[in-house]
Design a protein around this nucleic acid. Structure first.
Length: 752
DNA sequence: AAATAGCGCTTTTTT
DNA sequence: AGCGCTATTT
């Protein structure tokens, strides 16, 4: 057996050894927090605790994967992979798939992401006749999310005078009603949003004592990472699960709490003392990551916050180089200064690109750095922005998968009912929506009953709806006899999604087709990988059947990112990301940029001390990412929403002790003239309108007529339907494929 | 039905 | 500036 204690300092060792009873570890930045967590799990396994009796909850999938890998390499025991490790959401989604039927949810329930939630909210808001601009769907979702995170149901929301007063005050008194309808619709669609996963776990554990007991007995040892970022709902889940054995270890750092804006509650750290008076507290105060200069700068900054648990971070590391401050005239120049600095350091010190990170407050800031890095031929990778699974083409394909698994899924249905275009438009779907609302049924159910009640939809469209239903049902049949990859590939081809994307030969279009391919690759990997441990026993699955599409969907709906094959090969790139996404990471050279008042700290966080302190913690997180060298940058002028605005250096820069800084050398650099239009770029000439007057006489069209369209070129009429001004034709164009055209508008020419 | 032109709004983000 | 949604055009 490996002696795991030799890698730990005294305090870390104590935190690892103290396995029984409630434990809180307050771990400063760079103090080996992850190390303690992983070694603690390893120690438990070495002591003989069954891996499936250990539950380790993290905040991100990345953290979970990282920890899992480390533990497996640490414990020379393959059973270690049976430790229940994952995000709150993924672990409890799994639990709800097993026991959610007690609450009326099928095991195949769909998980709605924020886009799905917002689109559902939007229809509800419209149905209520409310102004979509006043009832902004993001805002409404945020309010509902806050309520759910605090375990407030819709009826409770409607009765809570404080919430009602608040909503009336902000001119949105109907949020409670929206919440109520929203919840109803989710249930009808057999769907849960992200907050529901935690909310309904709480309901399950509260109302079904035998279920609670089952999981209390299973999870004898519970560990929670990033405890400062948990919300009330998560706190209660943990409290319930740990109530029987109280072998609970939470690890966190109040100084790194940066998710208050979405409901994280630092109070959970203080509540710990009340809930478990006999708890053991360990403080990790030695920083192993950064130089003395960086640690001392971070300490002086965070001292400006009033609300914090006292601790003193120190380090044995060398003094290190001083902090540089780059003052730029403009955002463009800021990009140039940073890129040149990276180039210089890279050359002088022979460093890898991956040694550098540029951290900013908002995603929109990345552009000037991208441009300058590109000019110097320095490869970089931007994190954040739209993640893989939120891209349109991916969501479209996954919506087909979702329909196969759960046809009640309203949002999935609406996405794909007319994609690729099959001539079922908004008007038709509105009729179906109205009927569904009246009959309290899902859209799918209404569509399946159109033979009895056509809702005034004409026969051509009814036929196409039938085709759609038949298609989805044929996929459903194959769920059990084809593996996930085979079925997914079949769906991609038989729906014509790939064909549709391949018609678009713009760079964006090509990249979309590649993304579909990338998703198929991921599904192939999924099929080739073994099943996880059995939910009930924790033992490895004996089920040797191929992994199916519903299994894939169950795993994928909580993932945000997929690393494309090429990224896996070439990791030697400069990292560009927001400070938020940099939490938990470290880099030898870190550039924290855009340090201006109203940007960092953000103008939206200037109203209260609490918000400003969160910004300061964010800055604290930013500077403590650096191992060796920290560089700060700001611009005197910056383009904000299209116009140039002057700015002042951030107060956070002043909060760092002057002695930590490099001599402020004045760097002069010409950012170069902005790109001007050259005579060659003169605006495109307006296209002459071709009007031969020889357009199609609507009455003369019939199946087989050859026609020409201004944009689509030559084509053959396949079908005609409707009458008078609403007459429509389906035309097959040799270049553009099948199109439905309203003849009143489409300027077709007969080309017999 | 499908394409396009114009209007308005802009944090942070993971699940 | 840049994206998403609505209104308008074809």
């Amino acid at each position: 057996m490996k002696d795991i204690f030799k890698d730990l300092n005294e305090e870390q060792k104590k935190a690892v050894e103290c396995t029984d009873g409630p434990v809180m570890v307050i771990a400063g930045a760079g103090s080996g927090k992850t190390r303690v967590l992983t070694y603690r799990v390893a120690h438990l396994v070495q002591k003989g605790v069954e891996p499936f009796q250990i539950l380790a909850l993290t905040f991100t999938n990345r953290a979970a994967n990282e920890m899992k890998e480390r533990i497996i390499s640490l414990v020379e025991n393959q059973d270690a992979k049976n430790v229940w490790m994952g995000t709150f959401h993924s672990v409890f989604a799994r639990l709800l798939r097993v026991d959610g039927h007690l609450l009326g949810f099928p095991s195949t329930f769909t998980i709605y992401d924020n886009d799905d939630s917002k689109s559902l909210l939007k229809t509800i808001i419209k149905e209520l006749g409310l102004d979509i601009k006043i009832y902004n769907s993001s805002y409404v979702l945020h309010r509902i999310s806050m309520a759910k995170s605090n375990l407030i149901t819709a009826p409770e929301y409607l009765e809570d005078s404080e919430l009602q007063t608040y909503d009336r005050h902000s001119q949105k008194p109907q949020i409670g009603q929206i919440y109520s309808i929203y919840q109803n619709r989710l249930f009808k669609a057999s769907a849960m949003d992200f907050d529901d996963l935690l909310f309904f776990t709480n309901v399950l554990l509260r109302d079904f004592p035998d279920v609670l007991l089952k999981y209390q007995n299973r999870f004898r040892y519970i560990l929670v990472d990033e405890y400062q970022d948990t919300n009330y709902s998560q706190y209660i889940i943990v409290k319930r699960l740990a109530a029987r054995f109280e072998n609970l270890c939470v690890v966190g750092d109040d100084a790194q709490s940066i998710y208050g804006f979405r409901g994280a509650n630092i109070q959970n750290i203080f509540n710990f003392k009340k809930d478990y008076p006999d708890f053991q507290l360990f403080k990790l105060e030695q920083n192993y990551r950064s130089t003395k200069t960086i640690v001392s700068a971070a300490n002086t900054v965070i001292q400006n916050n009033k609300e914090q648990i006292f601790k003193e971070i120190w380090t044995d590391n060398e003094e290190g180089s001083l902090i540089s401050l780059l003052k730029a005239a403009s955002d463009t120049e800021e990009g140039i200064l940073v890129a040149h600095s990276i180039f210089e350091n890279k050359m002088n010190k022979q460093l890898e690109n991956s040694a550098f990170a540029i951290l900013y407050r908002t995603n929109a800031q990345s552009r000037s750095f991208e441009e300058s890095l590109r000019k110097l031929n320095i490869p970089y990778r931007i994190y954040g922005g739209l993640s893989f699974y939120r891209r349109k083409e991916i969501k479209d394909l996954i919506s087909y998968f979702r329909m196969v698994v759960n046809p009640s899924d309203r949002e999935a249905l609406l996405r794909i009912i007319n994609y690729p275009a099959r001539g079922i438009g908004d008007t038709t779907m509105e009729k179906i929506e109205v009927a569904a609302g009246q009959q309290d049924q899902s859209l799918w159910e209404v569509m399946n009953q159109l033979h009895q009640n056509s809702l005034g939809i004409n026969s051509g469209i009814l036929h196409r709806i039938d085709d759609f239903i038949t298609k989805i049902n044929s996929f459903r049949v194959q769920l059990k006899n084809r593996n996930a990859f085979e079925l997914a590939e079949h769906i991609v081809f038989s729906t014509g999604i790939l064909k549709d994307l391949q018609e678009d030969q713009t760079p964006e279009g090509i990249s979309r087709a590649e993304n579909i391919q990338e998703l198929l690759n991921a599904i192939r990997d999924f099929v080739d990988s073994p099943r996880p441990a059995n939910e009930e026993t924790g033992e490895l699955s004996e089920d040797q059947s191929p992994r199916s599409l519903d299994e894939f969907l169950g795993e994928v709906s909580l993932l945000t990112d997929l690393e494309p094959e090429e990224e896996k090969k070439d990791k030697n790139k400069v990292t560009l990301m927001t400070v938020h996404s940099a939490k938990g990471l470290e880099f030898p050279y870190v550039y924290v940029v855009g340090l201006e008042e109203n940007l960092f700290p953000s103008y939206l966080s200037m109203n209260s001390r609490a918000e400003l302190e969160e910004e300061r913690r964010l800055f604290y997180v930013a500077i403590t990412r650096a191992r060796q060298k920290l560089t700060l940058a700001y611009a005197m002028n910056r383009y904000k929403w299209g116009n140039l605005t002057m700015s002042q250096p951030s107060r956070f820069v002043d909060e760092i002790d002057q002695v930590c800084f490099d001599l402020p050398k004045k760097v002069k650099m010409n950012p170069g003239p902005a790109k001007k239009l050259t005579p060659m770029d003169s605006p495109e000439k307006p296209r002459p309108i071709i009007d031969t007057g020889d357009y199609l006489d609507i009455s003369s069209i019939q199946i087989g007529t050859m026609v020409e369209h201004q944009r689509f070129g030559k084509g053959k009429v396949l079908a005609v339907e409707g009458a008078g001004p609403n007459k429509k034709a389906t035309v097959h164009f040799s270049e553009a494929g099948n199109k439905q055209l309203l003849l009143r508008f489409a300027k077709l020419r007969i080309i017999e």
